[in-house]
Each structure stands twice: as C-alpha cells, then as structure tokens.
Amino acid sequence: MKNVTLRLAVLGSVAYSVAALAAPGFTALPTTTPFPHPTVSGATTAYVRCNDTGDFGSGLSNRNPTTAPSNECYLTPNPAGDLSSPISGYGLVTSASRPVTLNNIYSGNTNKSIGTVLDVVWRKPAATAPVTPTPMCIYGTKFTATANDYNTTAVGNQYFEANGVARAGFVDVSTPSTPVARDVEVAYARMTGTSEVLFRAGRAYTSVQHRVGDQDIPQTGLGSNPSINGLNSWPGSASAAQQTADLNNNWVEFTTDINARDDDTSTTASSAMFYIRTTCTTAAPATVTDAIRLRQTFQEQSTDGSNPSADQNFIEVTVTGFVAPGGAAAPAHTQPF
C-alpha cells in the first residue's frame, strides 16, 4: 500500500462557529481536533455515523430512514432534482458531468469508462454579521456507475465498485505560510428510489474498508494518510490498525457502496447526492485535477470469473472537481491506489 501524508498545519480558523451552520440534515465534521469515538472509551474519530442500516452495502439499506441514528445526515424533504439547491437561499453557481475513466494495471493500462460524476456548486451570498459574515457554498457530488468490464487480467466481467468517495479543497492554502481549515457540514439526499445512502462521512483522506463484522466508525491513530486502509486480500479480516483513519482537514470522505452489478446482490448503480457546506468567496470555483477520488476497498469477494478476488482489489480513480479558490488536491494520486 502506498502511504502518503498530507502535512498541512492549520494556523488559522474561519470567523464563524459550527453552530452558525446548523441546518436540517446537515451534520458538522470535526476540524483540527477529532471527535470522541461514540463506542470506544478514550478513542477519537474523524467520522460521523449517517445511515447504519444494510451493513455498509453488504445487505439492503433503509433508503428512507426516519429514526436516529440511521437518519443522521439525511436531508428531507428531497430537493426537486440533482441541480436544485438542498436548502433555500443558495443559487446554482456551476455544474459539470464528468466522465470517470479507469486506467491502471488491471485495465492493461488502457482507458476503461466506468461511470460519471455529477459535480455541482451552489452559493449563498454573505449577509450582515453575525448571521453569515462570509458567502457560503455547497459542493454536491453524485457518482453513477456503468456496467463495463474494466479488468483485462481476469476471466469474466469485473465492475468497479465505489465504496468511498473523497473530495478535496477544504484547507485554503492561498497563503502557504498560514493555511486555514474551513469548517464543513455534510448531508445527503436521494432524488431517485434506486440511489444508495450515505453510511458515514469523515474529515479524512482515507477510505476505510468495511466487511461484515467490522467496526462501523473508524478510530484515529493510524499516523499516516493512505488512500485506502484495510485488507487487500481475501479471505480474512482487517487488523485494528487497518480499520483506522486519521483526521485530514483538506478532505471529506463519504462511505457508500456503488456498483452497476454488485457481487453481494445489493446492486445500486447510483449514489445519493452528497453535500458539503462550507465558507467560500464570491470568486468562481477553481477546477482542480484529481480533486475527487473514487475508491474500491475490497468489501467482498467476487463471484464472477475464475480469479474471484481480482476485481475487488484496492483501486483509486481520480476525477477533476470544483474547489474554492485557494484549495488544492494534495496528496497526489498514485496507481492503482
């Protein structure tokens, strides 16, 4: 596994509190200091639980949760459509439908189309302090997978599975000597009856594998920031260290389970719309290479082909994405993850 660490010392803070961001369905993520872990005494986490049904895609999730804790982060009522703002007062700034192309050792180093990402930005103008002293932006992300065989190294058809969706740009590094971490909130909404839910979300770069029986909320303490953490083989269970993810202010990670033809039979080809709300400026969003990362984390064993585990190995696929001016997509992507 290729471990890379984002070393951004946060020396400033934004001029508003997390409480000032409060809105139905939106849930704050930690900044600088991890949250206390909800089930392990003395431990901390960069994550919040959003929908704990369906065992992280190994089974069928409750798509319309109404009771805690499975309805955390769930935005109701749904927006009218994918390009509609999830809450009032925000206008559409820009959007893009971005092709997702896999090209690594599994595809024979050739381009394989595996889906599309819808990338959307909405903005609310600044108001008189202390209400919203700076403009606020919402970044929306939705991945839709296609049933294209990407693995030329194995018999049968292999379909990319996105277990993690990570998004960069939440540390302003426009003044490198004084980087500033932006407070963020997350939410999700389902505009179609077949879109998958959001299981958890974290202020983290790392996507953590979740197999049946694994701990639902990763602890901090890894000491590094790999793109994917878990057991990159079958069978077996990840060690305690392989179930951790450290806080990383530059990234937000969404844990889900998207596959056009899932080996565990709980096929869901489209994610919900994932939202990140944070401060921004009146400037147009920047377009940054590799700002969106899709991760396959080897959640289950494949049932197709003669080499069953070949299509589930760790893979990261990158997509260009919008970020606030001053945002960056460090660390760099490495192949295949």
Results as ranks from 00 to 15, higher is better:
Val317Trp: 05
Asp246Ala: 11
Pro24Trp: 14
Ser227Arg: 05
Thr267Trp: 02
Ala245Ser: 14
Leu118Pro: 03
Gly12Gln: 15
Gly164Cys: 09
Tyr275Asp: 03
Tyr188Lys: 03
Leu294Tyr: 04
Tyr205Ala: 08
Val155Gln: 14
Pro325Cys: 04
Gln219Asn: 13
Thr265Leu: 01
Cys73Val: 03
Leu118Phe: 07
Phe314Asn: 05
Gly108Met: 06
Asn51Met: 09
Ser13Val: 01
Thr256Ser: 11
His333Arg: 11
Thr110Ser: 05
Tyr188Ile: 10
Met136Gly: 06
Tyr90Gly: 02
Pro34Gly: 04
Gly57Lys: 02
Ala204Cys: 07
Asn3Leu: 14
Thr287Ala: 08
Ala241Trp: 08
Ser61Cys: 01
Arg63Pro: 01
Ser97His: 09
Arg98Phe: 07
Asn249His: 10
Cys73His: 05
Ile315Gly: 01
Gln219Phe: 06
Thr297Gln: 05
Phe35Val: 04
Phe160Tyr: 13
Arg293Ser: 12
Thr220Ser: 13
Thr303Trp: 12
Ala284Pro: 03
Ser84Arg: 00
Pro69Lys: 06
Gln301Pro: 00
Ala68Trp: 06
Gly321Cys: 10
Val48Glu: 02
Asp311His: 10
Thr110Ile: 10
Thr278Val: 06
Ser177Pro: 03
Ile292Ala: 08
Thr39Gln: 13
Ser271Cys: 07
Gln219Lys: 12
Ser309Thr: 15
Gly140Met: 02
Pro336Thr: 07
Thr132Tyr: 12
Ala43Thr: 03
Thr31Trp: 06
Ser58Cys: 06
Ala269Asn: 11
Val93Phe: 07
Thr39Ile: 12
Gly327Cys: 05
Ala189Trp: 02
Val100Glu: 11
Thr279Lys: 06
Val10Trp: 06
Asp263Pro: 07
Phe35Gly: 00
Thr289Ala: 15
Asp52Phe: 08
Asn225Phe: 12
Asp214Lys: 02
Arg261Glu: 13
Gly321Val: 02
Ser13Gln: 15
Glu196Ile: 00
Arg293Asp: 10
Val48Lys: 03
His333Gly: 00
Thr116Tyr: 10
Asn157Glu: 14
Thr44Ala: 15
Phe254Ile: 01
Ser13Lys: 12
Ala43His: 09
Ala9Arg: 10
Pro30Ala: 12
Asn259Lys: 07
Phe314Glu: 06
Ile105Cys: 09
Met273Gln: 05
Ser107Val: 05
Arg295Ile: 00
Thr39Asp: 15
Val48Leu: 12
Tyr139Trp: 13
Arg49Ser: 13
Leu11Ile: 00
Thr134Asn: 14
Pro79Tyr: 09
Asp119Ile: 02
Leu231Trp: 04
Gly89Glu: 04
Thr194Tyr: 14
Pro308Glu: 12
